[in-house]
Nucleic acid binder design. Structure first.
Lengths: 193, 193, 193, 193
DNA sequence: AATGAATGAGGGTTCATTCAT
DNA sequence: AATGAATGAACCCTCATTCAT
């Protein structure tokens, strides 16, 4: 039942966006009465929140499932594989992704989104720690993780939502390069005065 | 008059967010009657759109003004200066920035935002074209511009809105490094099979 | 307009009681749209409150108007005249009286009702003070006023609402006697052990 | 079972008032399901009614129990004792009393309340009949009973609910005096023209 | 041009009541 | 007998938009 409501909520959210997702519409999509929603959720936003959380959880599962056992791979291969998995995971239902991206930050102070990013960040940090020797020595780990996680997340989403005239492989090549070249040892010149 | 409405709209949007920005509140802030709004704008969202467009325009002016004549500088210095200018420009009114980021994409299909990014992209592409010799040879220019512009934009905004425990200079260092290392010639290994 | 709403509110309250007085019904009775109510009152209960307050104010005016210049009369005549005025004043619209009595105490913590009783009590106390010599010496003035005002008020209302098989004059005779004999000097025996 | 429901209803009515007494809350307090209420009562108001009736019955029992064998006492002592018993009986659960007084009249056309008053009136009338010789000769018995019963009832309730700055004994003294002086033989002057 | 009162559809939510299990 | 999930009408209230003045 909760599931039916979440499915309905997801459907309506994808079709009509947050503004168009009225409780009566969600109820209708779930084939139940408006009042029944309130047996399972305390208020409308709890439904929306749950839909987005489920979306985020599924994404994380999907990506981590694809990544298990890949940590031995050379960095470029691993990064590519991760990005590909992420892209595939996000591409499941683009209209919902749009709503998630637009309403996520406004919904609960962005807590759902931040939690997601935190989880991903922890994974990445763990991995990078094992690669210490191969990274630029001056890299502030936390900062780099913060930056790269959000960059990759955002750009993947943008690629899917904006549909730029850009081949999927090209996009992944470029994003992979961005990540790797940022971490690779090399001449640093921040241009500070 | 239009200006007074935009000022009022901006004020209310910053104070109360999109949800809290009712037409009557905007009208009151502008010192006019609700009905009068409709002499200047066809509907509420047109006002919001205009506010955000003006915000974007001002940002572009502010940044380009700061950049004029800087093109001769070494790349690292130029990138740093640009990022700094952007960060300063976005930091003028964070509450409005929040609303802009949250509502912008949902508003008119994100047209305002896309236009902004297009304009910045054009500038960047023009500059990079003059630097051809110094860039990685394999760089697909359009793709790199698309990627970097959105990355820089998004990360700057996130830095301002999420207020991570991260020094402003550190942040700019890291973002500068991201940009430069992506463009710099160097070993490429996209990790393709 | 406020008046039209109050008239409508009064009508609906009289016809349907508090439970049946929905905002849409009041609006319909006033010939306006539901939303318009909220231009003049912050919420439904403010309308109900205002209706009852107006009812109470009118009652006080009506009674005091009838009493002006009567203070020279002998006490029995004065009391009779007051009770008669009160009875007439309350009898203007019995269905509304019923709602007022039933909902008054529950509405704003009974503030409207208490205020009414306070005002009447002040008048009575003022009068009795001029009659000191003629009253039982042991009478605790405040207590007697508190008791008599509420008794007279309640019994008058009950007479009108319950319609006992009791002649109007008989009722007034009896209530007058109750009041006068309570105040008159005479043997006191509280029956205390 | 009916008893459990009534207990629960009373508890909820006392705690939350009529508005706050939802059927599900009552059911929960009774430890049963909402649906089961309808096996024992035809609808919600029947429960409330029954709670109030039981309250009234208990009150009558309590008072009559305290009065048995007291009829030989001198009138002042008897009246005092009666008022005291009534006051004590009503003071058992003031929050419930409040609900009873506020909702009673609105509930079933006030039938519960009227029945209560009728019963008490019968007792009083019976007693007064035995006292005929000691009362004012002109007293219309039914009228006096009607008046005094409701007056005493109402003022006792008001004393408990409004908590005026008035000693319990003072209050009883005054109310006793009101009753006795109304019945006592004495000069009558209804102030009729 | 400007007003601002009026609109009215629609919002989220509650809860007495029913009925398949 | 008992359940409790489901109902759905009705609740109060909001606000973008209109239009007579």
């Amino acid at each position: 039942m909760v599931r039916r409501i979440l499915d309905a909520g997801q459907e309506v959210l994808a079709e009509a966006g947050y503004e168009g997702a009225s409780t009566s519409r969600i109820a209708a999509a779930a084939g139940i009465s408006p009042g029944s929603l309130y047996r399972y959720f305390p208020h409308k936003d709890a439904i929306v929140s749950a839909v987005l959380t489920r979306f985020s959880d599924r994404l994380v599962s999907r990506v981590t499932a694809r990544m298990t056992g890949q940590f031995e791979q050379p960095a470029p291969v691993l990064v590519r594989a991760t990005l590909t998995a992420l892209l595939d995971g996000l591409d499941v239902e683009p209209p919902l992704l749009r709503t998630a991206v637009e309403q996520g930050p406004a919904l609960d102070g962005g807590r759902t989104l931040l939690a997601f990013e935190e989880r991903v960040g922890d994974l990445v940090r763990a991995y990078l720690t094992t690669q210490r020797g191969r990274l630029r020595a001056d890299a502030p780990l936390d900062t780099a993780v913060w930056l790269l996680v959000r960059t990759v997340e955002h750009m993947t989403v943008r690629y899917l939502l904006d549909r730029p005239p850009l081949d999927r492989d090209e996009f992944i090549d470029e994003l992979t390069h961005l990540v790797l070249s940022h971490l690779r040892p090399g001449p640093a010149d921040p241009g500070r005065p």
